[in-house]
Write a protein that binds this DNA or RNA. Structure first.
Length: 552
RNA sequence: UGUCCGAUAGUAUAAGGGUAGUACAAGUGAUUUUGGUUCAUUUAGUCUUGGUUCGAAUCCAGGUCGGACAACCA
């Protein structure tokens, strides 16, 4: 148990509480998404924090759906959230819903009314906003604020019984209309919504607001550390106020800075727009920062957990470079992905001194990063090969280690070849490249004594299979689309998806398994798309390889 | 012009009165049948002004800059 990494401030708080014997040393956290959208990488940070802290200190974590606003929520989202949390590798102690507490919450509200700490207000939303004042001016009360306990009790029950239309009345906490904290100026606790709830159906027509549901749910579950993001700091006095007046379990709220990633957006509202307005192919489009999108893109749970570990947890606003996420997936896949050969932008290479009709096989290990290579496979080799168009240059710059007339390169796992010439069509496109090979240079028993600088990948023409390959780039052209002038969608990268309908892949790739990452040698990491079929293979590029060759 | 939160290399994150460290990014060199990997190495930082102290990134005061807060959203 040598722990080199220093504690983040949340862990410090938890550790201190344990040392002080608070709650008998018990640690219970919760991850509380509203089921109104898919989880994204920002949620992953929260998930890793909440589950991670609990795990570290022998505690547990509840998965609680904050489903207090039926008009925005749906079971589709509940299901996807559960899938994503599980996929990330975490197990919750209890699957819970704020809606499970509606009866209790109603009783809590009645309790506050009895104490003279809540009242029914008939004002319109506009009137309430108007009476609330501004951050620099105090608000003022209205006549409803002085209703008797009996009247409030009666009206609140009538609200519950459906005797009023939506918006006719609200229940408000009676706190302080002059508070410098806007959230303490008689916040709304309940509103009327004659809406069908995905769990409680039509039982209720009044629903609690976040502020009157979240802390209370924490208390009901006896959550010891309720961790949320910075924007809830001003809510904390209210969180504490309800708990104090209700005399319920004293859960405490702590806030950390949410994750911001450059070249993307992270708000559910914006992500929903991208989906509904068809800028992307659903919530799990591989360009989306959603967990499901990253999964479809080929990210692994371990790489995302590693990322969340590396970015740290603090209270200052941050903007993380997406390059760090890419580093994490490269590091993971470098150690685990099997190497395969695929030619994305093909041009034909003919070995003129290799017999027509002949073929042989060459061996390539699955993973050179692992002792023993995790086995390997035989790859068919023949006179005609597909190679990458960019691996040949008619007029090469200096330090170009690939093919050019007169140059020699190694064909990965096979022979060294020397370029003798090429053919162009009328339009000036190179159509064929001619080489001779050095028979003694065969990989494994090379007796040629020749050393070449470059090694290129290839696929045998008669043995090649085809696949569609999808290359992805960042979804936005600017680092922080939400902070630019105008609509964020104006900054969408028009070239974020590049489809290669006809790439050539080595035969073994026909057996590719969904969910498994492959390294296409020299090209990057790829994974099978969920819509791939044996008849039409589709690969998504997860990330390119790091490219140390800077062209000028 | 209210209340609250924050400020450490390019980006993040440590150092809790006593040597400013780590990761990513960037540069250089070596290794390499992937211009990948790996290894070595370099560059680069405490917002500001005062105070307390033998000693301050750390404690105190003022300033500056950034952010949050006035949905019947969460």
């Amino acid at each position: 148990m040598s722990e080199e990494r220093s504690l983040n401030f949340i862990e410090e708080i938890v550790e201190e509480d344990i040392h002080e014997g608070k709650h008998g040393g018990r640690v219970l956290t919760r991850f509380p998404p509203e089921p109104n959208g898919y989880l994204h990488i920002g949620h992953a940070k929260s998930i890793c924090l909440n589950f991670g802290v609990a795990q570290k200190y022998g505690g547990q974590t509840n998965l609680r759906f904050d489903d207090t606003n039926p008009v925005k929520e749906d079971v589709e989202y509940v299901d996807s959230i559960k899938e994503d949390v599980k996929w990330l590798g975490f197990e919750w102690a209890n699957e819970l819903y704020a809606s499970d507490y509606f009866d209790l919450l109603y009783a809590f509200a009645v309790n506050l009314i009895r104490q003279g700490l809540a009242y029914v207000d008939d004002s319109t939303p506009e009137e309430i906003a108007e009476q609330k004042g501004t951050p620099t001016e105090p608000g003022k009360g209205n006549k409803y604020r002085n209703r008797s306990v009996e009247e409030n009790l009666r009206l609140f029950e009538e609200m519950k019984n459906g005797q009023f239309p939506d918006g006719a009345k609200v229940l408000r906490a009676k706190i302080d209309l002059a508070s410098p904290n806007m959230h303490m100026r008689d916040p709304i606790m309940y509103r009327i919504k004659h809406a069908h709830h995905h769990r409680t159906g039509d039982k209720w027509c009044i629903y609690p607001m976040y502020d009157f549901a979240h802390g209370e749910s924490d208390a009901i579950e006896e959550i010891t550390h309720s961790v949320c993001t910075l924007e809830f700091i001003p809510h904390r006095p209210l969180y504490d106020w309800f708990i104090e007046k209700l005399e319920i379990f004293p859960s405490k709220q702590y806030e950390f800075a949410r994750l911001n990633l450059n070249y993307t957006v992270m708000s559910k509202r914006k992500l929903l727009q991208l989906v509904t307005e068809n800028y992307v192919d659903g919530w799990d489009d591989p360009r989306m920062p959603t967990i499901s999108g990253l999964r479809r893109r080929g990210y692994t749970p371990a790489s995302i957990r590693d990322f969340c570990e590396r970015i740290g947890v603090a209270k200052r606003e941050n903007m993380i470079d997406v390059g760090l996420l890419e580093f994490c997936i490269r590091e993971d896949l470098n150690k685990t992905a099997w190497r395969r050969m695929a030619v994305l932008d093909p041009v034909k290479l003919i070995i003129t001194d290799y017999p027509e009709g002949k073929s042989e096989t060459v061996f390539n290990e699955n993973n050179p990063e692992v002792e023993g290579g995790e086995g390997g496979r035989e790859i068919p080799f023949s006179r005609e090969l597909w190679i990458e168009r960019e691996d040949f240059m008619e007029e090469p710059p200096k330090k170009f280690f690939r093919l050019a007339v007169g140059n020699m390169v190694r064909l990965k796992s096979a022979y060294i070849v020397k370029c003798e010439g090429f053919k162009k069509d009328e339009a000036g496109n190179i159509t064929e490249i001619y080489c001779t090979h050095i028979p003694e240079s065969r990989s494994g028993n090379d007796t040629s004594g020749i050393n070449v600088k470059g090694t290129i990948h290839w696929v045998s023409v008669p043995h090649a299979k085809t696949a569609e390959v999808r290359l992805y780039d960042r979804l936005f052209q600017v680092e922080d689309p939400s902070n630019e002038d105008g609509d964020f969608k104006e900054y969408i990268n028009p070239n974020s998806l590049h489809i290669l309908p006809n790439a050539y892949i080595e035969p073994d790739l026909a057996t590719a398994v969904p969910g498994k990452g492959y390294q296409f040698i020299r090209k990057g990491y790829f994974t099978l798309d969920k819509n791939s079929t044996p008849d039409k293979l589709v690969f998504n590029r997860t990330v390119t390889l790091k490219d140390g060759w800077v062209k000028k």
